[in-house]
Write a protein that binds this DNA or RNA. Structure first.
Lengths: 340, 340
DNA sequence: GAAACATTTTAGATCGATCTAAGTAACCAG
DNA sequence: CTGGTTACTTAGATCGATCTAAAATGTTTC
């Protein structure tokens, strides 16, 4: 394995074959661990690979065989720890199978999402895990079907024709509302945030249904700004209404963090002056004091499940579309008390 | 563009060429926007591409041309928001150039990192942004040189022969120590955490040097557990020593979050009973109360700079190795006061 | 010793683009 | 009308693997 040998041009399977005195075809069989080749030949070829510092060229192989070993993942926002945990679950499962994940950030914008999907098609990905940008047209699902590209939707969905993995947001809302109601709360606000998409809608609807089923007023819905810093300073929005809520359910962990800080700034004690329930329960919420009672949706698990579903879909493209809805759990900590 | 036409086999450049009555070569020229082809021909070919729903096959092109348009990124931990922000910066810059990022998580383990590097070589990445796992052998840099693979180290470094982008941890420590000293603190602890690697060492050394240059005792170094939840409950470690610190500088934002919660649990008021300075300053720190005074290292910026450096390195492999060290800034908020 | 069979090995076509070197057509100057 | 130029266009080799169909080799059976 002289310097020149490796530097001049890439070591190819043909080089290996020559070095081991076999044909390119045989070397290829060794590479793919075929039982056809004799054990003596096999070890000779393997030795040659080591001697020459051979590196398998997946790209070349893919040209022949329809499998790129690449999976795409498109999320609307990378800096949101919730999506980071999701990705971590995806990468974990995909990585175990020897495949590789292409990461892309749509910025929650439909045009950028279209560009990214196109780019992934050009790279010949085996499939894509997509958290659709807000305001994605349902027609996208037909395009995807036309392309014949295996896709799994996560967290948000635009179509029932495509596999979907998410959490049972409605059940989560019910858990939160029931718990607050059991403490005696009647004036419960929902602190929303972000763009309108299916997950948003499901949470809002879930909140309304849960409130109605307890015969409570579901009308206190307040929309907070996007940036974490701005949420805290917009806390007063909670108190600008005729009916002042005694408890607040947050849309996600960002709102929970923001309000937790904002309420502190207002001089209010969470759990006494106002009860607060978070949603999503990412790791950082551990650090909030008082500890936040929160509905956990398990982003890492959802990522893992989405990855597994995609692998199954790739293996068997003719399966009917499936929906996997992860259970939510209410973690009761310290941020809720009886109304004053 | 009948259903069959697209479904049966992939539409290839040859199909496009035939449909537009030109040769494959001409179609290829159109694809690459060569000025050689006549405008009438060009638009005919472009129309044909649209008619047939042609998708460029980067994989096939790569076989001929030495450019995969794929960049690798290897980080030790995806769920840490610090790395998520780093990735976001990387993806942003790489994405703008039309390239794509392969994401991988080494789990801070050397063997896994080796597997991932190998996998990326097989995928023919144009280059890799690597945050080396703890205890990576410096010899890895020679292997990388042998491979001829463009690599940029981020945040941590194992060799001076490879480009590096990081933050000026030592200066950050100096800013923190100087500030605390100016408030009158003398007994300042350093709350460390995580695996030992270059960034760890630089922070610890930076702390020591800064303390010594103020003629203060640099010996109060306390190591905290890895998990966020465990950090809070290990807060007492701060007070187990003969000399009780009046201020604490945290290794990173995780320690800052953990201690912030832990001190609250101990019934101590941050900024009055004990001063706390964070490090890294990721977005979530906005939500801590009292607001955390913190040294910002700018992970998004570092990611962007690393991506740009890698692109330059790819364009010009013979450049001498470079080191880019981002300035840190001390954001003074509310978590520090005069010692009691 | 030939036929039948199992076990290995291989030549050559193939995937879908790019690149080289050569070809064609149109135009202009002399 | 010839030779030179410019402006396009193209045939065919090539990148590095896989796959098919066939060949070579070894083994057993009658």
């Amino acid at each position: 394995m002289s310097f020149d040998e490796r530097k001049k041009t890439r070591v190819t399977l043909l080089d290996v074959a020559r070095h081991a005195n076999v044909s390119r075809a045989t070397a290829s069989l060794v590479l793919r661990k075929s039982p056809l080749v004799g054990s003596e030949t096999r070890s000779r070829v393997e030795q040659a690979m080591r001697d020459l510092g051979y590196v398998y060229n997946i790209g070349a192989a893919r040209l022949r065989v329809e499998r790129s070993q690449i999976i795409g993942a498109i999320v609307p926002n990378l800096t949101n720890p919730f999506f980071a945990e999701l990705l971590s679950g995806i990468e974990e499962v995909i990585g175990e199978t020897g495949k590789v994940v292409i990461l892309a950030n749509s910025g929650d914008r439909v045009e950028r999402q279209a560009t990214l999907l196109q780019r992934m098609r050009e790279h010949g990905v085996d499939g894509v895990i997509l958290c659709p940008a807000a305001r994605t047209e349902p027609a996208l699902s037909e395009e995807i079907a036309d392309w014949g590209m295996p896709v799994v939707q996560v967290l948000r969905h635009i179509s029932f024709d495509i596999d979907y993995v998410g959490a049972d947001y409605a059940a989560g809302m019910r858990q939160a509302v029931d718990y607050l109601a059991s403490l005696g709360h009647a004036k419960i606000a929902f602190a929303a945030h972000g763009s309108v998409q299916s997950a948003y809608q499901e949470r809002v609807d879930g909140f309304r249904d849960a409130m109605l089923s307890k015969a409570l007023d579901p009308g206190i819905l307040i929309h907070f700004p996007t940036q974490l810093g701005e949420i805290a300073s917009a806390t007063h929005l909670l108190f600008d209404r005729a009916t002042r809520p005694t408890a607040v359910i947050c849309f996600n962990h960002l709102v929970a963090l923001g309000l937790s800080a904002g309420l502190h700034d207002c001089g209010l004690t969470i759990g006494r002056d106002l009860s607060l329930i978070g949603f999503d329960d990412v790791a950082d919420e551990e650090a909030i004091r008082p500890k936040l009672t929160s509905v956990s949706t398990g982003p890492v698990t959802i990522g893992e499940m989405a990855a597994r579903l995609l692998l199954e879909r790739i293996a068997n493209p003719d399966l009917p579309p499936r929906r996997v809805v992860n259970d939510t759990t209410l973690h009761i900590r310290q941020s809720c008390g009886r109304p004053m």
